[in-house]
Amino acid sequence: MTVAIVCIAGIGLVAAIALALADKYLAVREDPRIGMVTAVLPGANCGGCGFAGCDGYARALVAGTAPNGACAAGGDACAQACAKILGVEAAATEKRVALVKCCGTRSEAIRVGDYNGICDCNVAAATAGGDKGCRYGCLGYGACANVCPKNAISIHDGLAKVDKRLCIGCGKCVKACPKHLIELVPASATIHVLCNNPDKGPSVRKVCGVGCMGCHMCERLSGGKEAGHFKFDGFLAKVNYSNPPEDAAIVAKCPAKCMIEDPHFESGH
């Protein structure tokens, strides 16, 4: 029995010494802050920051090659925590979420053709410009939903919809959309214009029942041009998200019915 214990202890001792030596002479020293930063990042590995996963971003942050606050998923709290580890000041960031600026469902927006091919917006758009009459509208083939790391986007009735509660604002969908109609907007904003067509009223009307015609009704009702709640691009109203409107009454008055007041972006009428 004693021999056994001595034996095992001896083996253990030899191994321990060997390992200790190895650790001393062969070890690779890494900046310990990398691990600490990785720990405070959300760990979703969404790639929204532009780096290969959270670990890649942590390395870049420590190396000083990436700006702090690029992690949209972690938001402000995460940036603050990173700043604390790195010993720098963090600029306050506001949580932003994706908004699909189209509400032309199958029953509202005209389809000019019968698309037959891969279910992906980019290829559908490259096939005769897509089957939707409106050249600016959501095709509904789910390119954004496919890239969403949080499955926050779903397709209903030929239209992509973002669930605000799940969205982490990584912005991948913004890049994926061939029609460039997804925008990151402040999560606190509740009133939105769901249209992306800057054409004149009559040509919008020809292709969609709920397209913005640029009538300026929303602007007038929210205090006029001076109030600055809306901006106009051609004949398209856009919410000025640095000064968003607050009176929800204007939504119901929109003659084109392309405005919503909805905390979860569950649009549709």
């Binding site: 029953s107 005209i110 000019v112 019968d114 698309y115 490259a126 029942g209």
Partner: peptide, 15 residues
């Protein structure tokens, strides 16, 4: 509800 379409409803597909 039936989807709205134009009168000349052409098949769109890739070559």
């Amino acid at each position: 509800m039936k989807p709205k379409t134009t009168e000349s409803h052409l098949v769109l597909s890739s070559s």
